[in-house]
């Protein structure tokens, strides 16, 4: 029988778990651990919230000069395409 997963081991597998990429036997050990370990459930919840916060970020805008150049290129393309 495979040994129990410790918390210290589990925290290394969270991204694999969230991506649904844990092999079946490891997934079983992982989920068994969660049944009795509230702190690990909390840790996973922290990771989910972290992902949500990252998803709330927006990349900064391009420099206005670069954006202007792109717009000029677009207008040139449209003229040529028309």
């Amino acid at each position: 029988m495979a040994s129990e997963l410790t918390c210290k081991e589990l925290v290394e597998l969270v991204t694999e778990y969230l991506d649904g990429q844990l092999p079946a036997d490891e997934l079983e050990r992982f989920e068994e651990h969660l049944v009795y370990c509230g702190p690990c459930v909390t840790h996973i919840e922290q990771m989910r919230e972290t992902i949500r916060v990252a998803g709330g970020l927006r990349e900064e805008d391009l420099d206005a000069a670069v954006a202007d150049d792109l717009l000029a290129a677009f207008r040139g393309w449209r003229e040529g395409a028309a």
Binding site: T6, C7, K8, E9, C37, G38, P39, C40, T42, H43, E45, Q46, R48, E49, T50
Partner: peptide, 13 residues
Amino acid sequence: WANYWASSPPRFD
């Protein structure tokens, strides 16, 4: 309880 949480991490949710 070696390698188990010594105290629970704080909840974000």
